[in-house]
Simulated assay, not measured.
Amino acid sequence: MTQASKHTLSAEVREREYSPSSCIGGNYAPYIEEYATLSKAALNSASRHVELAYGSAAAHTLDLFLPEHGDSEPLPPLLLFIHGGYWQELSKASSLFAAPDCTQAGIAFAAIDYTLAPQASVHDMVLECRKALRWLHQHGEELGFDPQRIIVAGSSAGAHLAAMCCLRGWKDDADLPAGTPAAAVLVSGIYDLQPLIGTSINEALSLDESSALTVSPQGFDLTGFPPSIISWGEIETSEFKRQSQAFAELLDAMSVQYGTSIEMPARNHFNVILDLARPNTSLGDATRALFASLPVTFTRSK
């Protein structure tokens, strides 16, 4: 692990810069309500949906949506979504909005829950998300999707957790199966957690410099990191933009192949993720193109 970069912004500036609602007048409740409304509609309209447990803890559950496909067709790929909420809020129940866009495009979709702070540390959450990804890979064929074509996606804190799922050789957990995940879509993420120390966000997280470094993908050797889309909204704080740009630049500098960096015009930290798989949007089209680039190598066992 290499040490993530340190920053000299004052605590007051960091408080503002790491409050994404500061760009939209402070009230993000309407966006959370939109997540919930769209997710409820996705659940009500689903023809192939199941809720499953990937572990024994109360939060170790996921919702899986499958597209229609014939027995002679290859199993569909899977988009695994990890919700944001600063590791303290939200759930899979309000994270299902991309399911209809995915299934209509022949892509399976899953959203997971994980234990939130302060009941769990960020380190614990990383382990839970990696556990969910490992479980989905193990059970993909029987569940009805291709375990070799899983793309992990996340928004904000979820993008951080998704990035941690992509690390190879992380000393705190065994590597995920080879080629898992096959790619990633990281939206408005935080990849260096050190600037959060001393802000109100950290009250529930209790990060110190050592623990922040342990879960900051910006500070790791990214060899083996899968092809990725790094995206953020035009209407975001300078620090949120810098975090995404710096992570994309690090991937590029280390010769890690990734799809593209996309700043979404007229989108903010909260609504940019709604375009995750939406057709005729820059992010949605890029996500679909990333799926199209994955070779079909998995053969269903007899």
Results as ranks from 00 to 15, higher is better:
Q3S: 15
T8L: 12
L9Y: 11
E17Q: 14
A29G: 12
A42P: 00
S45H: 10
H49I: 14
A58P: 06
A58G: 04
D63E: 12
E68W: 06
L78F: 07
L79N: 01
F81C: 05
G85K: 06
A93F: 14
L96H: 05
P100L: 09
P100N: 09
F109D: 00
T115G: 02
A117G: 08
D124H: 07
V126K: 03
C129N: 02
L133I: 06
R134C: 14
R134A: 15
L136D: 06
H137P: 03
H139I: 03
S156H: 02
L161W: 01
L161I: 10
A162D: 04
A178E: 13
A178R: 15
A178K: 10
A182W: 05
A184D: 00
A184P: 02
S188E: 09
L196E: 11
T199I: 03
L207C: 04
S216F: 09
F220W: 14
F220C: 09
D221F: 07
S228W: 02
I229T: 05
S231W: 00
I235F: 05
E236R: 03
E239I: 02
G259M: 14
E263W: 04
A266G: 10
A266L: 09
N271C: 13
R278D: 03
P279T: 11
T281L: 05
T281C: 06
T287N: 06
P295K: 05
F298I: 06
R300E: 12
